[in-house]
Nucleic acid binder design. Sequence first.
DNA 1: ACGGCTAGTAAACATGCGTATACTCAAGTC
DNA 2: GACTTGAGTATACGCATGTTTACTAGCCGT
Lengths: 184, 184
Amino acid sequence: MSAQVTRLRGREATRERILRAARTLFGEHGYEQVTVRMIAAAADANIALVGRYFGSKAGLFGAVLEGEPTISAVFGGDSEGLPRRLAEYAAERMRHPPDSPILRALERSAQHPEVAEIARERLVGAVLQPLEAQLGGRDAHARARMATAVFLGIGALRRRLGPEEPTPADVDRLTAVFEACLAE
Amino acid sequence: MSAQVTRLRGREATRERILRAARTLFGEHGYEQVTVRMIAAAADANIALVGRYFGSKAGLFGAVLEGEPTISAVFGGDSEGLPRRLAEYAAERMRHPPDSPILRALERSAQHPEVAEIARERLVGAVLQPLEAQLGGRDAHARARMATAVFLGIGALRRRLGPEEPTPADVDRLTAVFEACLAE
DNA sequence: ACGGCTAGTAAACATGCGTATACTCAAGTC
DNA sequence: GACTTGAGTATACGCATGTTTACTAGCCGT
């Protein structure tokens, strides 16, 4: 019994190490750039265990995504302050990659055929739909879509040109941008 | 003399075929997804010729970028109508990938280490700087950056969720978004 | 007619990838 | 204490990639 617990703990612990390493690496470098060997090395685990526990690299990526919470905290709250909250969140993303590895992984990685579908679903389920639901009103879909596009664009730009420290003016500008995105 | 012309024409013609095929494929699928073999097949040329004429895959990609004109036409003109022109251009990009393969290639492809630098330079030189110069005024850099981010984001979203036919309301909204981006 | 030049070719090379196999070895059961 | 179980390991497999190496063939000037 206690023996089995030990065994399972070992198994679970390694699985967790792999998952954690994958989370970090995928978030940092994207799906393509990260190899299974890198993950295994970072997790201090054997390569074969990745396949054993997660089936495949894509399966591991999916497991990483599943383990992440949505960012609904940003959407919740009063609708009036929403553009400002989005702007502050976006400004944070000008500064550095999102804390949530899921978002980082989704920022990148959406290209690869193997994970494109899963990344798409996650973007819709975790960002687009909650935002659309929060918005309500006319053209909610198009408005949510536009705000999402701005998010993606800010991440894309930071990835290409490097981070930029947002000024207060930037936050104001971003607020105006999101207001324009979300206006009925 | 005429013989040499013939020879050169043959060489130049195949080089051009390769370049054209690369332009199309890179634009359609991005740097990573396109293999040298695919390009060679599409150009009806031998694989080795790609290396011979362009040095490497990255070199070929660079050659594709060099051959493309900038999109300065959108930036030129009166500053007042700029947001509208940008919005119409962006709306076009909601509908389908840009006609200019350079932009398509830059939308994607920016991830790969080999071409990240060249893609970055192109984004700055062909989009960000012209726009910034056209803008003038305070915070021109930050404003141009934000508009560029919106562009990138719209492309990123289309790539993930598929094209969307923009409504007139979308164009209006986009105009407002760009006005917010570019406002001093 | 011939000899050299060169565009074009076919095939291999080296590498890195994700994945699968066969094994080791410690822990648990009886 | 032999036997079983299963986590962990080392290694190889198959494949696709970018790149390079000889080689072929046709056109040129002489």
